[in-house]
Amino acid sequence: MANAPVAFPEPAPTAEEILDVMSNLDGTSSSVISMMTGFSAEELNELGGVPES
């Protein structure tokens, strides 16, 4: 069974936009969750934080 193609929002992000977002990742779970949700680190902490393993 073939994998389904990834659906990007229209219009699809440019390479520059993807690199900009990836440059904000620092290897922590909170940076990934922040990127995915749009919440800042402060907002995540107000919501109880993100446990790091």
Results as ranks from 00 to 15, higher is better:
E42H: 02
N45Y: 09
I33W: 03
V32E: 06
P13M: 01
D26Y: 06
E43T: 09
N24S: 07
P9I: 09
N3C: 08
V50F: 02
G38Y: 10
A2G: 15
N3K: 12
F8D: 07
L47W: 12
F8H: 13
P51C: 11
V6W: 02
L19Y: 02
G49N: 04
S30V: 03
E16L: 07
S40P: 15
I33H: 04
L25E: 02
A41L: 09
V32I: 09
D26G: 06
T28M: 00
P9Y: 03
A7W: 06
P51K: 09
E42K: 08
L25I: 03
A15Q: 01
A7M: 07
A15G: 06
M1A: 15
F8Q: 04
I18K: 11
S29E: 08
N3A: 11
G49E: 04
E42S: 05
E42Y: 09
E43A: 03
M1D: 14
M1W: 15
L25A: 01
S29N: 12
E10W: 02
A4D: 00
E10D: 05
F8S: 03
I33D: 02
I33F: 05
G49R: 11
P11A: 13
D20E: 15
S29R: 10
V21Q: 12
E52K: 01
M35W: 13
T37F: 07
N45C: 06
V21G: 13
P11W: 12
L44E: 08
G48N: 00
N24H: 12
A2P: 15
F8I: 04
N45W: 10
N24R: 11
S29Q: 07
V21H: 06
P11Q: 08
I33P: 05
G48L: 00
A4S: 00
G27V: 14
F39Y: 13
V6Y: 08
A12Q: 10
S40A: 15
S40W: 14
E46Q: 12
E46V: 09
E42N: 05
P13T: 01
N24C: 07
E16S: 03
L47F: 14
E17L: 00
M36T: 08
F39L: 02
F39I: 03
M35N: 14
G27Y: 12
S53K: 02
V32K: 07
V21L: 10
I18M: 10
S30D: 08
E10K: 14
N45M: 07
I33V: 05
A2H: 14
P13G: 03
L44C: 14
S31D: 01
L44Q: 15
S53T: 01
V6A: 06
A7C: 06
M35G: 11
S30T: 10
P13W: 03
I33L: 10
L25D: 01
P51D: 08
A2L: 15
P11S: 09
E17R: 01
E43V: 04
G48Q: 00
